[in-house]
């Protein structure tokens, strides 16, 4: 397994602990963006609010266009979060190829999308809760999470 798959699998292990209605145990289950949006709503419900969540289409099945549209809304709003809440632009961070995620469940690209959720978690008002949860995970997973956060933060430009 290469490092990108390890990143994706480790972040899926972390995400699987969130309690949201949409399935989110396996990579293919999150490629429609629904579970990710619900998780973001749980992490910071003020920013990822119900009005925003209502724009995420559920039950999109295998419709790649609708899945990609959902993923675009998720990615764009996370980028908004960095800008508006943390006061940072993400410069030089290779944004995920959303079509590769929606069409092929590309784990390299999915890992980069999930990596951005970490950036939200470590800046949200409930970060203590979420970081303490991360610290309960296996050391191998924690190590991947740490490296992913460090890499992301290298791209923060105020």
């Amino acid at each position: 397994m290469d490092e990108h798959e390890i990143l994706c699998d480790s972040l899926m292990t972390w995400l699987s602990n969130f309690d949201v209605p949409a399935p989110h145990q396996y990579p293919h289950e999150v490629t429609d963006g629904v579970a990710i949006a619900q998780i973001l709503g749980q992490i910071d419900g003020e920013f990822f609010d119900t009005a925003w969540l209502s724009r995420i289409k559920e039950d999109v099945g295998d419709n790649f266009r609708l899945k990609t549209n959902n993923l675009k809304k998720v990615l764009n709003h996370m980028i908004d979060y960095f800008r508006e809440v943390t006061g940072n632009e993400l410069v030089g961070f290779q944004l995920p190829d959303l079509m590769a995620i929606s069409e092929q469940t590309d784990k390299q690209q999915l890992g980069r999308l999930l990596q951005l959720i970490l950036g939200v978690v470590v800046n949200c008002s409930k970060k203590q809760h979420y970081i303490e949860e991360i610290m309960q995970l296996d050391e191998d997973v924690q190590h991947v999470v740490m490296t992913a956060i460090q890499e992301l933060m290298q791209h923060y430009v105020p």
């Binding site: 943390t86 800046n123 970081i131 050391e139 740490m146 956060i149 460090q150 933060m153 923060y156």
Partner: peptide, 29 residues
């Protein structure tokens, strides 16, 4: 210091995550 024992992985992880808890939102790593 070459005589200093290497930090255990557990310690490195704890230090990192504790530093995040003490970090101001939005500040660099």
């Amino acid at each position: 210091d070459p005589n200093k024992p290497a930090q255990s992985n557990e310690r490195v992880l704890a230090n990192f995550f504790n530093s995040l808890l003490n970090k101001k939102p939005g500040s660099p790593a």
